[in-house]
Simulated scan of single mutants.
Amino acid sequence: MAANDSISDLMTCTIANMLLDGETVFHGVSSQMPMVAMHLARQLHAPNLVHLNIPGGVNPSSVKKSSYSSAGADLVELGEAYFPLEEIFDLSMRGKLDVAFLGGVQFDINGNVNASVIGDYEKPKVRLPGGAGSAVLIPTAKKAIIWRTKHDTRTFVEQVDFVTTRGNLWKIITPLCVFEYRDGKLHLDSIHPHTTIEEVQENTGFPLLYDEIRYTKAPTTQELAILRKIDPHNYRAAEFG
């Protein structure tokens, strides 16, 4: 098994275990890992989880044929109902969206998220896609979970180059650890079994805050078996390239 496959399995199972039975959960485009994690949670411990997605499908029966973008028409065709994107925003603003999976490129200890530019806003080194739904969903969803397949000092920085959105994060999961946002700061929630606190600090551009060193639970044999069954094409590892 390739290292990235092992890490993607760990991250996917960790995300699935963050989701509770009965929660209403949304993922957007290019969200293969959360998409698979949501399906895994429904198979394991959260059969009443409501899976919403950007093309508008509700509780798709399978994600085996989903396109690379995690926004394929099959998520609607295999769904129980249709719930369009504009209704997702309304749902969240009414306080009825339990979890939203969102992305970002830079993060700092204060919970600021940058998905807009790298460098000066007027003359950026790189212009990014922008906030899209995150500017609405991070402030309004009950729990905002960010996943990122890179963890280095260019991603976790002392201060983001641009604040696309801020605050109200719940968890950030990376190939090295899980951060939890509390008391206005990112705190280290757990580090993954394959790493060390020294490696996490070396790849983080701000001092780590933690009460004790805790380790992320490794995937169980059952979780891995179901994961391979529901995602035979390994979409969960797509973002590792």
Rank of each mutant, 00 (worst) to 15 (best):
A218I: 02
T24I: 09
T164W: 08
M35V: 02
R148M: 06
N53D: 03
S116Y: 05
E239Q: 15
V99W: 09
F101P: 04
G22T: 03
A237Q: 11
D161L: 13
L20Q: 15
I54G: 08
I172L: 14
N4G: 06
R42T: 03
M11Q: 07
L186G: 06
I15C: 13
I109K: 13
V126T: 10
N234L: 10
V50M: 12
A238S: 10
Q201Y: 05
E199N: 12
V58Y: 01
Y210F: 15
R166I: 06
P139V: 12
K185P: 00
I213Q: 13
V25P: 00
I191R: 08
G22C: 01
T153Y: 05
L188M: 10
T155I: 12
S69T: 12
V178F: 04
G95W: 03
D161C: 11
M33F: 04
Q201G: 07
L208M: 06
L186Q: 11
Q159P: 03
L19A: 02
K143W: 08
D183H: 11
T155Y: 05
F89P: 01
K143T: 02
P124A: 13
L75S: 05
I54E: 13
S6L: 15
V113G: 06
E202I: 03
G111Q: 04
D211G: 12
I146E: 11
L102V: 05
T149C: 01
I54F: 09
D211F: 07
L40W: 09
N234D: 03
M1K: 13
Y235S: 14
M11F: 10
D21C: 11
L169M: 12
E180C: 09
N168H: 15
F162Q: 05
Y215R: 10
L10V: 03
V160E: 03
E77G: 00
V76A: 02
I226E: 10
H45M: 05
L208R: 10
E158S: 14
P60V: 00
V117L: 04
Q43Y: 07
D120V: 02
P129N: 04
T216R: 06
T216F: 11
L44V: 09
M11D: 04
N59M: 10
E239S: 12
S92H: 07
V76P: 06
K150R: 15
I213V: 15
N17D: 14
N168M: 05
G133I: 00
A46S: 14
G205H: 03
L176K: 12
E202N: 14
V29I: 14
H151K: 05
E122W: 11
E180K: 15
D98R: 08
Q32C: 14
I54K: 07
T216K: 10
P219V: 08
G79S: 02
L97H: 08
R236Q: 09
E87L: 07
T12K: 04
T12Y: 06
D74K: 01
M38Q: 13
T221D: 12
R154S: 12
L40Q: 10
R228Q: 15
F179R: 07
T149S: 03
G133Q: 03
H27R: 08
G130N: 13
E87I: 01
I7Q: 03
R214V: 06
H51Q: 12
P47A: 14
V178T: 14
R154Y: 12
G130C: 13
A144C: 10
L102K: 01
H194K: 09
V58E: 01
T153R: 15
F107R: 09
A141E: 04
E180P: 04
T155Q: 11
V50N: 02
M18Y: 07
L19P: 01
D108E: 07
A37T: 02
G133P: 00
T196W: 08
Y68V: 07
